[in-house]
């Protein structure tokens, strides 16, 4: 079974962030980068599918040369091959990203193509759906369980009050939500092995952008005036007094 998983490099913002002066990006000086969480689970799912059914997994990202760091991370966990669709690092909208992915993989058929439900930064909720549509493949979004049996895949989505179950013919596209599995950490051996793995590079040309980003801005935050109720276990009675004041306990 050949599995493709698409990931995106995003800043690991932690507790605070600032914007660049032109308000186009998060100021990422002194910031680490990560794979979006849903996609970390998609990578894990790709590795598990190959462990179970044989074949090989490929990881793909569209981004700057720096994004090869995230490809290496996936390779270290057990993905076999990496593909970097190399850009100058400026953000592409979802339509353009999907177009580039489709062009890059059209010649190589995959049995399963995995995406995150949405990327962490832009949150477009659509690249996977667009790729599936252009390739004419069935697509289930936001899945939290996947079972493959012969030519059919069963996928489950968590909804209010329970689960919805889909059954689709393969090959198929799935967009994954965090919680489908617990991603592994790379082993030392995996990290060493990843250094020797090849990363294929392609320079896609950017199609027309239809959603034009103008600027980013921070939403108003909770006004932070904290009232310190005390220190250590002696604070327990002060907390109870506050709980009463708030009507949480009578």
């Amino acid at each position: 079974m050949n599995v493709l998983v698409c990931i995106k490099r995003v800043p690991d913002t932690g507790a605070r962030f600032e914007l660049t002066a032109d308000a186009q990006e998060i100021d990422t000086r002194n910031m680490e980068y990560a794979i979006s969480p849903h996609e970390e689970c998609a990578v894990e799912e790709a590795i598990r599918l190959v462990e179970k059914h044989g074949g090989s997994a490929t990881v793909l990202t569209l981004g700057s040369e720096a994004a090869s760091e995230q490809i290496r991370e996936a390779l270290a966990k057990g993905v076999e091959r990496g593909v970097l669709l190399e850009t100058d690092g400026k953000e592409w909208d979802a339509g353009a990203t999907a177009q580039a992915i489709v062009e890059a993989i059209r010649a190589t058929p995959f049995d399963v193509i995995l995406f995150g439900n949405e990327c962490a930064d832009a949150g477009n909720y659509q690249v996977g759906v667009r790729v599936a549509q252009q390739l004419g493949l069935p697509c289930v979004t936001g899945i939290k369980a996947l079972e493959i049996n012969g030519g059919m895949a069963q996928a489950k989505c968590e909804v209010a009050g329970g689960w919805e179950v889909y059954e689709v013919p393969m090959p198929a596209v799935f967009t994954v939500k965090e919680g489908i599995n617990t991603p592994r950490h790379p082993s030392l051996r995996g990290i060493m092995a990843a250094k020797k793995k090849e990363i294929g590079r392609v320079k896609p040309t950017q199609p027309n952008v239809q959603l034009l980003k103008k600027r980013l801005k921070k939403p108003p935050e909770r006004s932070g005036k904290v009232e310190i109720l005390g220190q250590g276990k002696e604070a327990a009675s002060a907390i109870v007094a506050k709980l009463k004041e708030l009507g949480v306990i009578q």
Partner: peptide
């Protein structure tokens, strides 16, 4: 974070 954008 919020983004201001234009849709064509």
């Amino acid at each position: 974070l919020l983004e201001e954008a234009e849709l064509i």
